[in-house]
Amino acid sequence: MQSRLKTLLLLGPGLGWLAVFMVVPCGIIFVHAFFERGIYGGIDYSFTFENFQRAVDPIYLTILLNSARIAGLATLIAVLLAYPAAYAITRAPRHRQVGYLILVMLPFWSNYLVRTYAWIVMLNREGLINRGLRGLGVIDEPLPLLYNEFAIVTGLVYNYLPFVVLAIYASLSRLNLEVLEASEDLGAPAWRTFLRITLPLTLPGVAAGAVFVFVLSVGNFITPDLLGGGRLQMVGNLIYDQFLSARDWPFGATLSFFLIAVMMALLFTQAVLVNRAQGESRSQVEGRTAKKAGLADA
């Protein structure tokens, strides 16, 4: 009885916070999705399904899919870049690791917008990269590096890479080295140890980092606005515009509702998959190790 009270006391503030600042606002968004935009902005409280019909128009669905594709691409690239980096950091001498981790975090000491503007300076037609390449005689005409999908993906990967490195590092540094030694002792080449032991055991870290990048990217509106030049919209821009320039709060609420629903579904699927994979891979790896260890003994 007492332990239940303790649980309740410990959980209470956190749950209360989430309920008041997360569940209630989501509820408000959902309710507003069923009303109409007033002539001068604001909300006209007459019930309608029109916003939902409008939101599934191909033009908006395409934006949702495009956002998912751009966020997916950013996630993939971020994971491919982050894994080797995190791996190298865990293999470095312990006293150096802290230094490397601080370097990974260093960009966060400056503002997100400042960092994004820095990319504009580098990527534009008359920017550092184009001037450099032209100076070296590699190109005659400037490359179109800015105001396109390439620039958006570059910006997203750059901004969220540190999160993935940290997530994968956390997972790699918890790895039980004895398992790796066992694999090596039993004659497995390094690549097989990596593929069959290290990678499966650190997948939860990869998944956590990947979800982080994906979720932050898919709703991002600053990067597509600045690096995409407003020509390529992501769903975040669409929602931002509905609230801040179109003054169509109900339609903005409907789009937000769609985005939240899709993200919840993704997070839920991811949690289920990771849970299952974790259980399987751990029992498999441990089972295999135990079996082989037994054989070696014999």
Partner: peptide, 17 residues
């Protein structure tokens, strides 16, 4: 009331590929 048609048109222009 026509403002709604303008913002809708602009939203669609911005959203177009």
């Amino acid at each position: 009331a026509t403002q709604k048609s303008y913002t809708k048109a602009v939203t669609e222009i911005m959203a177009s590929q």
